[in-house]
Amino acid sequence: MIHVTDELELYSLGALAPGDAARVTAHLSECPACREQARAIDEVVQELPETLPGREAPGRLRDRILASARAELATVRAPRRDMAWTARLLRPALVLAAGLWLAVGAAALVNENLSLSNELKVVASDRATYESIVEGIRQGGRWWYMAGKDGWTGSGGTLIAPRAEGRPPFVVFHDLRPLPRGQLYTVWLVSSDNTWVRGATFRPDGKDVQAVDVTAAIAGFDSCAVTIEDSAWGRRAGPVVMESRIVPPAP
């Protein structure tokens, strides 16, 4: 092994040509003796910035750095949204499987420098969510599909009332559009005499598939719909963006 002791000052000061610097880096990775010498030299070199006159960084730089980091986090956490057409066509269970695949796939494709442990946390969280949805579907029961209309064409949701006792009804949405601040999606249960009862109020979470629990019992209602409201309370006031078209017979 040829040591690089003679080049460590040059290396630490950044005065080696790139090829030579790479050679020293490679040597340091396998030579503890040279690495210890390099560390001692680095300690001195790292004091050199302290000799500089103070200079105020632009105020926007901090915001810029944090915005970039925040955007990276969002990229890691949000599954890709390029499967909208399949989501419209496939049955909900397959949509859920696609969502799970997307979550795993997105995590596998993220920048290699990102922390693996955090990728796994995100995937594990998404997988737990999807598994819970799939489990609800597996129990069987009644389904109402709500198709998006007007500007929400392509979006949709399936209201599922599981057969198992104790399991509350829930809606599995796909391809939900983002909403302006202050606006809410609201799920309504509609009876044959056109009475509208609020079943859930929520904001989209940006994922391809989103499950929302319905807080009202569905017995006695014939259809369902989704509106956009400004408030989590009160009577329906906003436009209908999804509605069920077919009422399947009770099993």
């Binding site: 910035p49 302290e50 500089l52 006159p53 103070g54 200079r55 105020e56 960084a57 632009p58 730089l61 810029r64 750095i65 970039s68 980091a69 990276e72 920048n111 420098n113 990102l114």
Partner: peptide, 30 residues
Amino acid sequence: RLAYALAYRILGEGQAAEDVVHDAYISAWR
């Protein structure tokens, strides 16, 4: 501030120094 002073000293220009500090912090983040 120290990072910006160092980048500015090396590059002699504010925008380039800002870009370097931004990239360095994101590199550290990753």
